[in-house]
Simulated assay, not measured.
Amino acid sequence: MREIIFDTETTGLDPKAGHRLVEIGCIELIDRRESGRNFHAYFHPERDMPAEAEAVHGLSMQFLADKPLFAARVDELMEFLGDAPLVAHNAAFDFGFVNAELARVGRPALDPARMCCTVQMARKLHPGAKHNLDALCVRYGIDRSHRVKHGALLDAELLAHLYIEMTGGRQIGLGLASAATGAAAAPGAATPAAPRGSDRPFREPRPHMASAADLARHAEFVAGLNQPLWLDTV
């Protein structure tokens, strides 16, 4: 299963108020594991950068002055996203900005049905707790010490680790889940073994219970011990 974890940085909070996308970072997951592929881009916003936004992500207009417009890289972005589910923290915010930029260049909006929001997941898993990225990284033991300011690719990488942990952890991709049997397993039931491949030789089960001879040898050994410690407590 292919999924895309992504994050954005912007000039403000509301695309309807004229705020623009300035950075996007995307991480590809295959079967809940990072594939090593990512997409990262900065964009010129065609407007000023408010001081409060720059304080959050550190992206100044001086830095963004020579960066391309969104239109110049939209084809690369859409090719990378493909038709995969899109995972973001407070996903409605990120979807809103990406869709606003897509509308400006005459491209179809991202389908909300593809949206997976880790804030909503966290609220269900940990009601009443803090659900920001820093707090969740602490809860799940994810190192965020290198996160001095917000950054789209860095935050997407942290979110990828967080999403993996929130959806079952690393073991989800190790083949430990039971094979589909057409019926739900009872809670606490043992996981059935995977079917034995036809190329594997059959081996008789090995006995694990002590034999009568083993028990006799053990009794003889114990009888020969000189003042064993456990007799002091009898």
Rank of each mutant, 00 (worst) to 15 (best):
R47K: 11
V119D: 08
A193Y: 10
A194E: 13
Q171A: 13
A17N: 13
R2E: 06
P50R: 06
K130C: 09
L59C: 03
A55L: 10
R104V: 07
A88M: 01
G197S: 14
D111C: 03
K16P: 08
D232T: 14
L136I: 09
P228R: 04
L13D: 06
W230S: 12
R33I: 09
V98F: 07
T11P: 04
G168I: 03
D31E: 12
R2A: 02
R200I: 15
E28Y: 06
M121V: 12
P207A: 06
N90F: 11
F97P: 00
H131K: 13
P201V: 06
V119H: 10
A184G: 07
D111N: 09
F97D: 00
G96M: 05
I4Q: 06
E101W: 08
L162Y: 03
Y42M: 07
D111Q: 04
N226L: 13
E101V: 07
T233Q: 15
F6A: 01
L162R: 02
D232C: 12
M121Q: 12
M1Y: 15
V138P: 02
K149R: 15
N99E: 07
S178G: 14
K16E: 15
E165A: 12
L158T: 00
R32N: 13
H89A: 04
Y42P: 03
A88E: 02
G25P: 03
D7C: 02
D155R: 02
D143E: 03
A71C: 01
Y163A: 02
R20W: 04
D199N: 14
R139S: 04
V56M: 03
V56F: 05
E3N: 06
A156V: 01
